[in-house]
């Protein structure tokens, strides 16, 4: 189940807001969630929690997306490139990242079978189970 929240004022800088709206429009949040410090501006608006620190990396968890195999596919790579993100590879870890305006976007999921097993295919499942 998804709850729609309406806020009187956007809690995010424009770049981050565009990113969230783009992912929302593509149906990403049916199977993924925003995690890390960038959730805090929402919590501050909704619950009055104070948290000033913000990082330049924006993380999303997509664990459930791998488990659910019922829906369509979202091409995250194409979606992000279309809104101006560049694709980067971290050669130490082999992880694929996206960057725009110095903001680094990562899609995280559980590594099954150990740290060295490759992770999520970026064309991840759309209508998977919600968190």
């Amino acid at each position: 189940m998804m709850t729609k929240l309406t806020l009187s004022k956007a809690p995010y800088p424009e770049d981050v807001e565009v990113l969230l709206k783009t992912l929302f429009g593509a149906g990403f949040f049916q199977s993924g969630v925003l995690i890390g410090s960038w959730v805090m501006p929402l919590y501050r608006k909704l619950f009055g929690l104070q948290y000033a620190l913000k990082t330049f990396d924006i993380d999303f968890a997509v664990e459930a997306a791998v488990a659910g195999r019922s829906g369509g596919i979202i091409d995250l790579e194409k979606i992000l490139v279309d809104v101006g993100y560049v694709i980067l590879t971290d050669y130490d870890t082999g992880l694929r990242k996206f960057s725009k305006g110095g903001f680094e976007v990562e899609f995280l999921c559980h590594r099954r079978g150990g740290r060295d097993i490759p992770k999520l295919d970026l064309k991840h499942e759309k209508n998977a189970t919600s968190f």
Binding site: T55, V86, T89, D90, Y91, K97
Partner: peptide
């Protein structure tokens, strides 16, 4: 930590 991250990102961009 942020400096290390930025250097890594910068190296990845140069590679790309």
């Amino acid at each position: 930590e942020e400096l290390v991250r930025c250097r890594k990102m910068s190296a990845s961009i140069e590679q790309a």
